[in-house]
Amino acid sequence: MLSAQDKRIIKELQNGLPLASRPYQIMAARLKMPEEELINRIRYLKENGIVRRLGAAVRHQDLGFKANAMVVWDVPDDKICAAGNLMAEFKEVTHCYQRPRQTGWPYNLFTMVHSHSNEECVKIAEKIARAVGINQYNLLFSAGELKKISMRYFE
């Protein structure tokens, strides 16, 4: 269970780390706690998976990863764990989730593939399809980013 102080730490961390020699000291002063205690608490939050990652979020489009496709797969229900774990092994796959099928939507496994071009994304999907042995899939290319922000919690 998160304490009130944990929530304040999380709010500080989502505002960003100060660009200064002692960033944690600056944050700790705002939180009215010792620097060392703050560092230890962030480590605890990381070790327990509450902070998934501490560091930079980059605009990958600016770094040459200009294309992304959501590749959706229709996987037999009893094969979903094996397929998901196999797909997760591919370095080009950044996200892999099981999601529910719906009427008019037969796909139950979702992977995000990032690469330098749409053609490359197609090749990656073919490579994954061969490796996992799933032929029922579809690529949904990104046609434009309408919004991308980081979620703000406890506000």
């Binding site: 999380i10 902070v51 998934r52 979020a57 605009r59 979620m151």
Partner: peptide
């Protein structure tokens, strides 16, 4: 703008939040 943010990235579920695509 190349770095969108330097800070924490959280597990929304662990924070008690619900999300969907």
């Amino acid at each position: 703008g190349l770095i969108r943010r330097l800070g924490g990235i959280f597990d929304s579920k662990m924070l008690g939040y619900h999300s969907t695509l």
